[in-house]
Every structure is written in C-alpha cells, then in structure tokens.
C-alpha cells in the first residue's frame, strides 16, 4: 500500500505523529508541574496509565483485525466486582482468584470471538450484547452494589513497587505493562501478527491464501479479554472497588487506539502507536488537571482529540506531501 515503507522500515506508517504528540505532552508536563521535574513523576504517570495502555493493546489487536470490542469496560467492572466478592479480604484467596479472573477474561473473549466467527454476527453487536449481559449479570449477582473487599496481596500489582538497583522504586504495574508491550510487539512482528493485520485489511485474500481467519480473529478477542482482566487487576489494586470502575473504558481504549493512528476497520496501524496513544491520553488528562481545566471538560477535550486525530490520519498524507514539496525532499528511489 505504501511504497515508502521500504526505506522507513522501523516505524510503521502513522506511528511517528503520536510519538511526537506524546513527547510534546511529556515536555509540557515538566513545565506545568513540579512533580514532573524528576523521573518519579513520570513513573507515577506510567503507573496511572498502565491499565489503559494494556486495554488499548488488547483493543488494538481486535481493531486491527477488523473488529470492535465494546465489552472491555463492563468486563473490567465485572472482574473488579468478582474479585472483591470472592477474595473477601482474605489473603489466602488471592492466588486462585487471580487465576479465575484471568480465566474469566479469556472465557468472555472466547465467547465474543466464537459468536463473531461462527455465528457471523458483527463484532460491534456481539460485544454490545456482551456489555449488556456483563453489566446485568454482575449486578444481578451482587445485588446492586459491590460487596466484599480486596486483599492486600491482591492490590500489590496495582499499587506496589519493586526495588530495582539503579531506578529505585519501580511500580509493579509499569513492569507488567512493559512485559505486555514487549510481548505484543514481538507478536505483531511475527508471522501470526502480520497475518492478523492482513485479516483486517482483506479477509478474503487471507482466506484464499490459506490463512486461518477465524482462528486469528478468535485469538484477537481472547487476547483482548485476557488483557482486560489484567487491566482490571491493576485498576482494582490502584483504585479500589467500585461499580463505576470500568465505565466508559471501552470508548477510552478505542480513543487511544485511534489516537495512535490505527485505522478503524482494520489493516493498518502499529501496536506501539496504540500504546503511545493511550499514554498520550493519560498524559493529556494529567496536564489538563495541572493547568486547572475542570474535570467535566475532560470528555469534551477527548472528543475534539479523537476527531482531530482521525481527520489528521485521513488528510495527513496530503498535508505531509505539501510540507515535503515546500522543503526540498530527499530524492526518492
């Protein structure tokens, strides 16, 4: 599609703008708040952003393969409520509950994926249905308000830190985020990841070429469910139990992915850009708070941003070309 990719192999097309935006935001943060004059401030930002970035990575996998996952927000809420109810403040329950939560995430992703691929229902509808089911089921089970409590050990990944020789206190969630990100990047560079993008671009071509389209899309949904479960564990540790914890997260994750220049409908975009999009979003919200913009306007800003990001993605090629013409461009092969 883009022949220039040949001489710019490292960054996928569309990654550069969001990295620039992120860099500008991070520098602006340093000027706006004294907390950001040292690494600890940025580590705190990363820690805050970790759940959203992880969700965005999961959402990226689904979007790039041509789908949507609207169920992640309610899945996060469900996971947190389930965790509180089952752990009930007892440290002894932590391990099996964490395993159960991850399993539940996989299960939800599996159901989403199977209905999408086997019953041929558009993923928008499937995950919308799943959103309703999870919302209803969780509160049916808890009777309207979350009950129980989280254990101390359960909250460690979300708010604890690890002492690392050179860096000092590094939050667990940042380490987990790094592992997920590296894993996702390696996956997307491998054959399976590349085929996943191809599925989003042209499903029929992949099928005719012998690719297992259904399995790949299923894999995307399962990963999204699993990562949502992981995000829920971090979020629960960080913010505690609430019935509103996941509200709107699905749209926020989609915003982050789109901000990263990933094409809705699939086939284009990189996972690093999606993660950078999530981090930029979180950095922007921190910046707005520091500057003193009311929290109520946060969503308005989010709205303007996603429209601008998509408009830029649609017209950016033209804009870039104009810029290139003005200054003498390096000779193209």
């Amino acid at each position: 599609m883009n022949s220039r990719l040949k001489w710019r192999p490292r960054l996928t097309d569309g990654t550069a703008p969001v990295l620039v935006v992120l860099a500008v935001l991070l520098v602006a943060l340093a000027f706006a708040g004294p907390a950001y004059s040292e690494p600890a401030g940025y580590l705190a930002l990363l820690k805050r952003a970790a759940p959203l970035v992880i969700l965005a990575i999961g959402q990226y996998l689904v979007i790039v393969s041509g789908g949507f996952d609207l169920s992640v927000g309610s899945l996060v809420t469900a996971e947190v409520v389930i965790a509180a109810r089952l752990i009930n403040g007892d440290d002894g329950n932590t391990v099996w509950v964490v395993a159960l939560l991850l399993g539940f995430g996989v299960l939800v992703g599996l159901v989403n994926g199977l209905i999408t691929t086997r019953l041929l229902v558009p993923s928008f509808i499937v995950t919308l249905g799943m959103l309703l089911v999870l919302d209803g089921a969780v509160f049916l089970w808890t009777g309207g308000a979350p009950r129980g409590a989280l254990s101390e050990s359960f909250r460690v990944p979300g708010r604890g830190s690890l002492e690392i020789p050179v860096l000092g206190q590094v939050p667990w969630s940042v380490l987990i985020l790094l592992v997920v990100l590296v894993g996702a990047v390696l996956f997307m560079r491998g054959g399976t990841g590349r085929t996943l993008i191809a599925v989003g671009d042209n499903e029929n071509a992949v099928r005719l070429a012998g690719g297992r389209v259904d399995r790949l899309r299923l894999l995307a949904f399962v990963s999204s469910g699993l990562l949502a479960a992981l995000a829920a564990i971090l979020l629960a540790g960080f913010a505690g139990v609430s019935a509103q914890v996941g509200r709107g997260l699905e749209f926020r994750a989609i915003t982050a992915v789109v901000l990263g220049g990933v094409l809705l409908g699939g086939g284009r975009g990189s996972v690093v850009a999606a993660a950078a999009g999530a981090l930029s979003l979180e950095a922007l919200f921190s910046l707005l708070k520091l500057v003193g913009v009311s929290g109520a306007l946060e969503s308005a800003v989010q709205g303007v941003i996603i429209i601008a990001a998509v408009a830029y993605a649609a017209h950016g090629a033209g804009l870039r070309q104009k810029l290139r013409i003005r200054k003498p461009a390096p000779a193209l092969p």
Partner: peptide, 27 residues
C-alpha cells in the same frame, strides 16, 4: 460534516461529538 469533510469514521466522529456534548453538559 465531520464524517464527509474530515473523512472521519462515523463511529469516531459521532463518539467525538458525543464526548463534546457530554463535556458541555457536565460543565
């Protein structure tokens, strides 16, 4: 216009407008 002129995906365009309206209402 956001969909046709800015060529934004309808999902994103209307989600963006929804968020702007929400910000206005909440504010």
């Amino acid at each position: 216009l956001v969909i046709t002129v800015l060529k934004a995906n309808a999902f994103i365009a209307t989600l963006g407008v929804a968020l702007i309206l929400r910000g206005y209402l909440e504010h």
